[in-house]
Design a protein around this nucleic acid. Structure first.
Lengths: 123, 123
DNA sequence: TGGTATTATTAGTATAGCCAAACAACGCGG
DNA sequence: CCGCGTTGTTTGGCTATACTAATAATACCA
């Protein structure tokens, strides 16, 4: 599971929450990539059982794909909230969280999450 | 300045603290890369004014290279300490810090550093 | 029905970063 | 002083990830 695949999955999850259908074009607009780039990424993700594409080119996450997407999305949320808690502005926090989310181990993530929860309790 | 170049610079800095000379072979051993890989990386870093190589193949950081190396090294130290403070074991903290150090913005790093300093004061 | 706009795909290109194999150069020890 | 081990470099290959240009398919509308 590479960083770019994780980002595509997260994008599909997020886009699915704000519209009926997700198509490759929507992902292009969201991520700022060209159509061929997204087309090839979708092909590979399809072959790896992470998404399905129906006859109207509508993209859906498989169970496997959704599991990854949701994990990454949770990391994104937790990490950006922690950074904002430390005083980082929203935009920077979201952007840095997007990079960190792919790199950190489960151990590190769970410790950071615990820290955030402890902070929120004493709020 | 790519992640791999930053890591090479950091390795040269660290190796320079524990031995007289740093050669490409030392970097291979330290980083687990092949000699051709390191050779090509050094060539590019030489051309970019980050290192110099003398007639005995001993590698030195230029002022520019040292500045980057030290900045990355500081990030490595601060980030791993913060993670350990949050309960992450030493090995995981060092390894995750090594990836995070390339990802985060100056803003985020300075906020994390401030947090660590505040924690150390109240220790 | 036929044309236009949108969308998807294919083909080819580029960069980064790694590898192994092969070759070159240097230095030390017999 | 010559050969062998260590070190460095060149060559060529591979994967990942992006791009542009061109083509194909679809979808909608007059």
């Amino acid at each position: 599971m590479t960083e770019s695949v994780e980002n595509y999955l997260e994008a599909i999850l997020v886009l699915g929450n704000t519209r009926q259908h997700v198509r490759a074009t929507d992902i292009c607009a969201h991520m700022g990539y060209s159509r061929p780039t997204v087309s090839i990424a979708m092909k590979s993700m399809r072959q790896n059982g992470l998404i399905t594409v129906d006859e109207h080119n509508q993209i859906s996450l498989t169970e496997k794909g959704r599991a990854v997407a949701e994990e990454i999305y949770e990391r994104h949320m937790v990490l950006s909230q922690v950074l904002m808690h430390l005083g980082v502005d929203r935009e920077t926090a979201l952007s840095d969280a997007c990079k960190m989310e792919h790199d950190i181990s489960d151990i590190t993530f769970s410790c950071i999450k615990k820290f955030l929860e402890a902070q929120q309790e004493t709020r």
